[in-house]
């Protein structure tokens, strides 16, 4: 009788405790929730670059993909773009592809920006912010490192130094 009471109380407290724990957890993580987590498959997308070539992420299976989101108006983006370009030259023959996605800007601005900084890697414009939404990006610049299996290895937001860019590319070299 007393034993049963203890078991009942334990069960009830456990159920209540679980409900409270879940609510607290959900409340604490709701703002920091990252749509694409490290270790998960990177969501596929297809965008057209400034030369009219289509790039589909899944076509780069077998290579590492350095996926960079940026805007011409964002000062850190301006700083890191030349670094990315330098390292792109070093790593493009070693199986690392750079895909750079501008968020919803005009072709004119993006082209002029690319010409100004002499960028060689493919640049695409996410006109409807669909790729940005799929990856759940808020502050720019944001960089995803995707390995040869299409899995996200690292997510970085904020400015990168040239050294970081090199380390990142080294990380996803197949």
């Amino acid at each position: 009788m007393k034993k049963r009471r203890l078991v009942m109380r334990t069960i009830i407290l456990l159920i209540l405790g679980a409900a409270v724990a879940y609510s607290l957890y959900a409340n604490l993580t709701k703002d920091t929730k990252q749509k694409v987590a490290v270790g998960e498959k990177a969501p596929d997308f297809v965008l057209t670059d400034m030369d009219g070539n289509k790039h589909r992420l899944s076509d780069y299976r077998g290579q590492g993909v350095f996926l960079n989101f940026w805007g011409t108006w964002c000062p850190p983006c301006k700083k890191e773009m030349p670094y990315i370009n330098n390292q792109y030259q070093q790593y493009k023959d070693k199986g690392v592809q750079v895909l750079s996605v501008d968020i919803q800007e005009s072709e004119l601005q993006v082209r002029q920006f690319a010409e100004h900084y002499k960028l060689d890697f493919p640049i695409m414009i996410d006109t409807d912010k669909e790729v940005m939404t799929a990856y759940g990006i808020n502050p720019l610049p944001a960089t995803f490192l995707i390995d040869k299996n299409g899995e996200v290895v690292k997510y970085h937001t904020g400015e990168m130094t040239e050294k970081m860019v090199r380390e990142f590319m080294e990380k996803i070299k197949p």
């Binding site: 805007g71 011409t72 108006w73 000062p75 968020i103 919803q104 800007e105 005009s106 004119l108 601005q109 002029q112």
Partner: peptide, 21 residues
């Protein structure tokens, strides 16, 4: 049109730039 700044301001170096898109 050589350059377009949708949200114009002078940046820290005194050059024309844009605050946002």
């Amino acid at each position: 049109l050589l350059n377009y700044f949708p949200d114009f301001e002078f940046d820290d170096n005194g050059e024309p730039s844009t605050k946002s898109r």
